[in-house]
């Protein structure tokens, strides 16, 4: 397992950050996947009563051959299970995101991203913690990218 932590500062209020990044229509993540993972057809469910939702995307990226082989020849759709802890007026929020490829044994490639954000008035700041459980040696650098 490998962990990386990044300090982040965003130039908007916590409320605006949450309403933008975690909007119910999933617009932010649809744009993100369209631009970053090259999947313009990423799907985002609505938030359910447990403050959870699932994003499904199929990255169109170049992978080393051994990774493709490990995944069965092609890149499968990735399920990103998100959970948000935030209530209106709160001074901090936590977003948890657990991504696994939709294949048998996909949990071997689990990537967990935890975003903790605190309100600083007109701006907000926090930490993003990424945990990789990719079991194949050498994969981490690519996933981090």
């Amino acid at each position: 397992m490998k962990e990386a932590v990044f300090d982040v500062n965003f130039n908007v209020s916590l409320k605006t950050f949450i309403e933008t990044v975690y909007s119910d229509d999933g617009k932010f993540y649809k744009s993100f996947h369209s631009e970053v993972t090259n999947d313009p057809k990423a799907k985002v469910t609505s938030w359910d009563h447990t403050h959870s939702r699932t994003i499904t995307f199929t990255p169109d990226v170049k992978l080393p051959g051994f990774f493709k082989t490990a995944l069965g020849g092609a890149i499968p759709p990735i399920n990103d299970a998100q959970q948000l802890t935030y209530s209106e007026g709160a001074t901090s929020a936590k977003g948890l995101s657990v991504s696994t490829p939709s294949i048998k044994g996909g949990e071997r490639f689990r990537t967990q991203v935890e975003i903790e954000i605190q309100s600083c008035g007109a701006t907000c700041k926090g930490k993003i913690r990424i945990e990789l459980t990719a079991s194949i040696f050498g994969l981490q650098g690519m996933l981090e990218g």
Partner: peptide, 14 residues
């Protein structure tokens, strides 16, 4: 990439 994208997206949304 996520952080860079988020900052740009938030700036555009302003």
């Amino acid at each position: 990439k996520f952080i860079e994208f988020t900052n740009r997206y938030l700036a555009d949304a302003d």
